[in-house]
């Protein structure tokens, strides 16, 4: 494990836990896209099918369990919690699942490393993760401002993506035969999606004002 990978995992973990703890503490999910959160829960559920069949390390297993538990908890809070669910603005969170999920299923079926159930599901989770943030970004654009919660959340997710790319570069040069085209390309697409957001995030941070995304 290299430092980029560890830092990437930690920012990823922080993004999910910060979101969960804040929803739990302030009893509000205003500005959070339930659709993005549900897509992430699906990402973890389909990617970690190997959790009971392949043991990699205690670290690996524990992290998988935390990601599964926290992502499903967030979805539960937004959908089921009697106070939190009232702050969910369903009318603004309008991105259609089919536009995201169907292309990912289609791509995973035709572009994968091996045509087995587990492998196709794993590939699907990579494609889905790359675009799962879209409903959240659309919601941000629509409400045209970002509070600390969503700002920190998207920032931490972006940091995780950037660190994972550094991790892949590091592993490519230090480990023999470390070539994984599918996660690399999906990961780069995912990181590019954040690039646009980052521009506005830093711009607003520099000017020390509330973030306003263009219409």
């Amino acid at each position: 494990m290299n430092i980029f990978r560890l830092a990437g995992d930690m920012t990823h973990l922080a993004s999910v836990l910060v979101l969960l703890l804040k929803i739990h503490t302030i009893k509000s999910c205003a500005g959070i896209s339930l659709k993005t959160q549900e897509l992430y829960a699906i990402v973890f559920a389909t990617r970690y099918l190997d959790i009971f069949t392949d043991f990699i390390s205690l670290y690996n297993t524990i992290m998988k369990l935390i990601f599964l538990g926290s992502s499903f908890s967030i979805v539960w809070y937004i959908r089921q919690h009697k106070i939190v669910r009232r702050s969910y603005d369903k009318d603004q969170d309008t991105f259609r699942y089919v536009f995201i999920v169907l292309p990912c299923i289609f791509l995973a079926l035709i572009i994968n490393e091996k045509f087995t159930f587990k492998e196709v599901m794993w590939t699907f989770s990579l494609y889905l993760e790359a675009v799962a943030i879209l409903p959240q970004l659309v919601l941000l654009q629509r409400t045209r401002n970002i509070d600390n919660l969503t700002g920190q959340y998207v920032f931490l997710l972006g940091a995780y993506r950037a660190l994972y790319i550094l991790n892949w570069i590091y592993r490519y040069f230090t480990e023999p035969h470390y070539i994984h085209w599918i996660p690399w390309i999906a990961g780069i697409v995912q990181t590019l999606l954040y690039g646009d957001f980052f521009y506005y995030y830093f711009h607003s941070w520099k000017n020390n004002k509330k973030l306003q995304l263009p219409a």
Binding site: H12, D54, S57, M63, E113, Y164
Partner: peptide
């Protein structure tokens, strides 16, 4: 054909 190593990333 060599089996690929298990996926160790999250």
């Amino acid at each position: 054909e060599v089996e690929p190593p298990p996926k160790d990333e999250l």
